[in-house]
Design a protein around this nucleic acid. Structure first.
Length: 485
RNA sequence: GGGCCGUUAGCUCAGCUGGCAGAGCACCUGCCUUUUAAGCAGGGAGUCGCUGGUUCGACCCCAGCACGGCCCA
């Protein structure tokens, strides 16, 4: 045994060597498979007595003298193997004795049922397809340690059925969302991740450098400004599913690298986006869970539309009282009275945002559109007809999770320039999250963007909600981690 | 950034008031041709996260560090 090598690994490597010594190649080029495990079980009546070839990972081996049973798991499920020395011959049985739990093997044999009624393949030949050299986690408890599960997702997927189910559900959601949008004549596009400016959201970006161009670039924090250029270009319904990057803290609902679905539709507004949101979420829930009720944090949530529409200012009044709206000073005082930390001169937009964050949003358990936001914190959205300080914007919440953001898009280029200038001033005042001027985007608007509704949905959180995952890391295959020691 | 908790065999976990490092699964040897958390008998396996301190003696107490979890900002 080499230094630092466990006895188990030494044993498995020993079996590898013994296989080679007996003329068996443990990593052959070709494999054979006629049926998947589940197909053999489901089509037993047709397959009984016939030969099949199955392949997969040995998850359990039960020796029984001159015979043995094993569970073989492939992407479809599990099938039992029954290996008899008098069926496969002495030499092959000697090789069978060298396989370990975890090995990938192929078995050709006859479909049969044991006396306890389990569909099995009685082996006529066994082929090692890939020798495992490290042991699997314990079969009964699986891999529980979260650090190991995140760092070694391969093992997590092998050992924990729920982990696999979660990521299969995630993949299904992407497929269903695309189908839903294709049915509505949306086209899928790809826009730059490396951007000379960052915008479309409030966040600190990751910065990188392009050597050949000799310039700094930012990893996008949102897709918005490019997708709206496409609306100008006449692609009237576009969507993009991709990673955005925000250089901020990490917690149960925030990952620095996350997946967003953004879509833009010409000739509609945020009311149209509410309809799309409701329909999409209901479609996803129906296809994944069979219904519109989901379990979340020990409660049942009914996703049936129409969802509640709650005006931001009504929510603020509900949280702080009528007097809060009399002046910015009154708003600041009322917020402070509720324990909200308001520093500096009282400013309407930022205070409202804090009140929403701390007092309103965590309680939005039933599906809710929070609508009509202060313009000051929404530089890309169009004003409401009755109040120029308020814009046509919503965020939506389910189970206390902020899931998405939407506007009736601002399409007046002069107004957009003013809004950017205000943001620019914020940035120069030291707010790294403020959005900078994007002349090229304004120029695009000057060509004329039709009235448009836009929507962004945080897909990771939606996966959390629909799979009952309590931490965003449980729905991201390889979450960012500090290097192991 | 703060608080609390965790790190012991490949995995899941015990380990009392500081006194020789434990169990189950896995692994090894033997028996076993319908088992399925196979069974029976026997056996091996450890840098107790790292570094320092206190002590006759530290997995255990103290300090620092690393990584992680949960909660808060």
């Amino acid at each position: 045994m080499e230094k630092g090598e466990s006895a188990l690994v030494a044993e498995m490597r020993g079996n590898l060597t013994r296989m080679r010594e007996s003329g068996v190649e443990p990593f052959p080029r070709r494999s054979e498979r006629t049926h998947r495990a589940r197909e053999v079980v489901e089509a037993y009546d047709d397959l009984e007595g016939k030969d099949v070839a199955v392949a997969g990972r040995l998850m359990s081996v039960r020796g029984h003298g001159k015979a043995g049973f094993a569970d073989l798991v492939d992407g479809s499920g599990k099938i039992q193997l029954y290996v008899r020395r008098d069926e496969i011959g002495e030499e092959a049985f000697a090789v069978w004795k060298l396989v370990d739990v975890g090995d990938i093997v192929g078995v050709r044999g006859e479909v049969m049922k044991t006396k306890t009624g389990e569909v099995s393949v009685k082996a006529k030949s066994v082929t090692v397809l890939a020798k495992a050299l490290r042991p699997l986690p314990e079969k009964w408890h699986g891999l529980k340690d979260k650090e190991l599960r995140y760092r070694h997702r391969s093992l997590d997927l092998i050992a924990n059925e729920e982990a696999k189910a979660t990521f299969l559900a995630r993949s299904a959601m992407l497929r269903i969302a695309r189908e839903f949008l294709w049915e509505r004549d949306f086209v899928e596009v790809e826009t730059p991740i490396l951007q000379p400016n960052y915008g479309g959201a409030f966040a600190r970006p990751f910065t990188t450098h392009h050597h050949s161009l000799g310039m700094d670039l930012y990893l996008r924090i949102a897709d918005e400004l490019y997708l709206k250029r496409l609306i100008v270009g006449g692609l009237e319904r576009v969507f993009e599913i991709g990673k955005d990057f925000r250089n901020e803290g990490m917690d149960r609902t925030h990952s620095p690298e996350f997946t967003q679905l953004e879509l833009y539709q010409a000739y509609t507004d945020y009311h149209g986006m509410m309809e799309i949101t409701e329909s999409l979420v209901v479609r996803l829930a129906r296809e994944l869970t069979g219904g519109t009720e989901i379990e979340w944090e020990d409660r049942t949530i009914d996703l049936s539309p129409p969802w509640r529409r709650l005006k931001v200012m009504d929510a603020v009044v509900e949280a702080l009282g009528d007097s809060a709206l009399e002046s910015d000073e009154a708003l600041a005082a009322a917020a402070r009275a509720k324990g909200i930390d308001v520093d500096g001169p009282p400013r309407f937009g930022p205070i409202v945002e804090k009140v929403l964050d701390e007092l309103v949003e965590p309680r939005l358990f039933e599906p809710t559109f929070l609508i009509d936001y202060p313009k000051a914190i929404s530089p890309l959205a169009k004003e409401t007809p009755d109040d120029p300080a308020i814009v046509e914007r919503f965020e939506f919440f389910i189970g206390g999770l902020e899931l998405g953001n939407s506007f009736t898009e601002l399409n007046d280029p002069d107004e957009q320039r003013v809004r950017f200038e205000l943001q620019q001033a914020e940035r120069e005042r030291g707010d790294a999250e403020a959005q900078g001027m994007d002349e090229d985007f304004v120029a695009a608007l000057e060509h004329g963007m039709p009235p448009t509704g836009g929507l962004g949905i945080g897909l990771d959180r939606l996966v959390m909600l629909l799979t009952g995952s309590r931490n965003i890391r449980d729905v991201i295959l390889f979450p960012p981690m500090r290097p192991d020691h």
